[in-house]
Amino acid sequence: FAHSSGIHQDGVLKNVSTYEIIDPKDVGLDSGSIVLTARSGRAALKYRLGVLGVKIDDESKIDTIYQQFLKLADRKKEVNDDDILMLAGADAKASHAVKLDFLQVTTGMGVKSVASIGLDISGQKFEEASTGNGPVDAAIKALKKIIQKQMTLKEFTIQAISKGSDDVGKVHMQVEYDGSVYYGFGANTDIVTASVEAYIDCINKFRVK
């Protein structure tokens, strides 16, 4: 009763009897399940977004989210609900003025962490580099070289990863600017990238205030 192939998923969503010849309840299950993997199609992704309360009618937006979904599915065995919500949120951030263009970090034991970052700010490209006390510190210092504003990190929380080393790391941040505190969120399989995205999320919120 678990379907991961795109063809099977599309068939079941259109007519459950296509691949389920008996009712799951007859064997003690509540229902069949749509498992999202790299073999899943757009229909399954759109269905799962609907189940999670995210309604997207624009097919071009579904295509954009689906392409990001495939990239994530290539890195993970199974894409969970948190991942799907993260991808939908990433699509919503596409209109933000400040976007992460690239991030490269060199770190390790016995060496100084160095980060190079590229930002796209309203279509203009900016690049900077910095060292720091760890990869996240180096990346944020490089970011602040480009965004030359007096910002203070008030809170930095990483959600525990419990399902494996390839799971998405979630970062929550609070950044103070001009007397107000702004909340930001980032999610990525790379925790340094997730941290930078959370900081950028804060910046976008006070830039549009």
Rank of each mutant, 00 (worst) to 15 (best):
Ser165Leu: 10
Asp101Val: 03
Lys209Cys: 05
Ala198Asn: 07
Ile62Ser: 11
Val35Phe: 14
Val181Cys: 07
Arg39Lys: 10
Asn204Gln: 01
Gln174Glu: 15
Leu100Pro: 08
Tyr199Asn: 08
Ala44Asn: 00
Gly11Thr: 01
Lys144Gly: 01
Ala115Lys: 10
Glu155Cys: 00
Leu100Glu: 10
Gly123Thr: 00
Asp58Met: 02
Asn80Asp: 11
Ala187Arg: 00
Ile121His: 05
Glu197Arg: 10
Asn15Glu: 11
Gly11Leu: 06
Lys154Ala: 05
Ala43Leu: 08
Asp190Lys: 01
Val98Asn: 10
Ser130Asn: 13
Val79Lys: 15
Lys93Ile: 01
Gly164Glu: 00
Ile140Thr: 04
Asn188Glu: 12
Lys125Leu: 07
Ala38Arg: 15
Asp190Gly: 05
Ala73Asn: 05
Asp91Lys: 03
Ala38Thr: 05
Val208Ser: 14
Lys77Asn: 12
Phe206Trp: 14
Lys163Pro: 02
Val114Glu: 15
Ser4Asn: 14
Leu49Tyr: 14
Met86Phe: 04
Phe1Leu: 07
Gln67Cys: 05
Lys25Leu: 04
Leu29Ala: 10
Gly186Phe: 09
Gly108Trp: 08
Glu78Lys: 09
Leu103Gly: 12
Tyr19Lys: 07
Asn204Val: 00
Leu36Gln: 14
Lys209Pro: 03
Gly41Asn: 12
Val79Ser: 11
Ile34Glu: 15
Phe185Met: 09
Ser180Met: 09
Asp101Cys: 05
Ser5Thr: 04
Lys144Tyr: 07
Ser116Gly: 07
Lys144Arg: 13
Ser31Cys: 06
Gly108His: 07
Met151Phe: 09
Lys149Phe: 06
Val171Cys: 00
Ile84Val: 03
Gln159His: 11
Phe206His: 03
Gly123Phe: 01
Gly32Cys: 01
Lys61Pro: 04
Val168Lys: 00
Val181Glu: 13
Ala43Trp: 01
Asn133Gln: 13
Gly184Tyr: 15
Leu103Phe: 11
Phe156Tyr: 15
Gly53Lys: 13
Asn15Met: 05
Lys25Glu: 14
Glu155Val: 01
Lys125Gly: 01
Leu45Ser: 02
Gly179Ala: 06
Gln67Gly: 07
Glu197Trp: 09
Tyr177Ala: 06
Arg207Lys: 11
Ser17Met: 09
Arg48Pro: 04
Gly164Arg: 02
Val181Gln: 14
Gln9Ala: 03
Ala129His: 10
Gly11Arg: 01
Ala142Trp: 02
Asn188Trp: 05
Leu70Cys: 10
Gln174Lys: 08
Asp30His: 07
Ile7Ser: 13
Ser4Arg: 07
Ala73Glu: 04
Val98Glu: 13
Leu153His: 06
Lys163Asn: 08
Ser40Gly: 08
Ala160Asp: 07
Phe185Cys: 03
Glu155Tyr: 15
Leu153Pro: 01
Val27Ser: 12
Tyr177Leu: 03
Gln159Gly: 12
Val105Met: 02
Lys76Pro: 02
Gly123Ser: 01
Asp63His: 11
Ala138Met: 01
Asn188Lys: 08
Asp57Gln: 10
Ile158Cys: 02
Ile191Asn: 13
Lys125Asn: 08
Phe102Met: 08
Asn188Ser: 11
Gly89His: 13
Ile147Phe: 09
Ala90Trp: 10
Met173Lys: 09
Val16Pro: 13
Leu103Pro: 08
Ser33Arg: 14
Asp83Thr: 06
Thr106Pro: 00
Val192Gly: 03
Lys76Ile: 01
